[in-house]
Design a protein around this nucleic acid. Sequence first.
DNA 1: GTCTATATGAAGATAGAC
DNA 2: GTCTATCTTCATATAGAC
Lengths: 196, 196
Amino acid sequence: MSKKEQIIKESIQLFSDYGYEATSMTKIAEQVDIKKPSLYAHFKNKDAIFYSAVKQVTGEYVDFVLTTIDQTKGQTSKDTLYNVLHHAYTNEYQTEFLGEFFYRFVLFTPNEVEAQIKPLIKRSEEKLESALIKIVEEGQANREIDATLSSRIVLRNYLFIFNNLDVDVRYYSLRGSELEQYLNDIWSVFWRGVKN
Amino acid sequence: MSKKEQIIKESIQLFSDYGYEATSMTKIAEQVDIKKPSLYAHFKNKDAIFYSAVKQVTGEYVDFVLTTIDQTKGQTSKDTLYNVLHHAYTNEYQTEFLGEFFYRFVLFTPNEVEAQIKPLIKRSEEKLESALIKIVEEGQANREIDATLSSRIVLRNYLFIFNNLDVDVRYYSLRGSELEQYLNDIWSVFWRGVKN
DNA sequence: GTCTATATGAAGATAGAC
DNA sequence: GTCTATCTTCATATAGAC
């Protein structure tokens, strides 16, 4: 791994744990075992490191979810929707790493970099939504999902869970069987609410 | 309003908008129109201001919701649950002010003050949950809500919406009829999922 | 309680040698 | 590319006069 890649990797972890302001260039330099001024040989400034970190995380996040969707296709829509959700929340990489960073900065973007990173996040959301709406519409065509509900409402409710479950997982430190229980409690009411 | 109360009031707004680290003592002093060192006549340090701010916001938040529950009682459980949710999200004080602060620091507590404020937040949640579980159980006794679902599952789903709708409202800047639509989309699927 | 002046430290960033 | 040394700015916080 190049020094530049190392810097991005370690800064993702630090930004995740401490937030933007509380992550100093000194801390980043320590993590990659160089001195602070050497960082400026790789990046123009702190904002540039942050931007690269966001770009990498949003990219990995989209790839992760799209791959999961691909791998779970060919099942019923119910199973696909459930498995995508389940896989996203029982995969350690997603829950311990991507999610923490992603949601921290989606929800509370530092003012200095807001204009730069909002488009990155918006594009990643659009990609996921267009993949998921297809599954919902297939489910309605199959009569698995109530077709009197608009696909927009079903998708909105699914995304509401998909996006916000992360908040609860993090807040209650849900893991293992507790997480499994929580996920099923939320899923079961959702499915009762949309099934045909 | 005393100077001390003014400091708390203005600091809530600043912490809300900029976060903990990015809110400086200088900014707080400017907002209340005194010089920075004068702040230290009222509070020991920045953490103490933050603690007072959290204490006030969590107190007001609990009062707001409990008052809403009281005012909407005597209706069906369905109406009470819906109205509590609706009132919380169409009240400007809640959406523009309490929510922003509350969720910012519930989700991402600054490390310096985490140990002090976690108990404040936990207590406020417990109060709300014990008020809401009663309404759910009444609804099950009335046969409005499916009694084969445990009250814990129903409450969990309701709180999931109640707490996390805020995240979406803020993220998508939902207001007026858009907010109303969003809220109804989420509520309608929830209610289909739990009703008898 | 409020101020001016100041201490102390750490932040982001640069200059320039190697 | 990496370093030491340094600049500048701004942070929290205190001393002590009024």
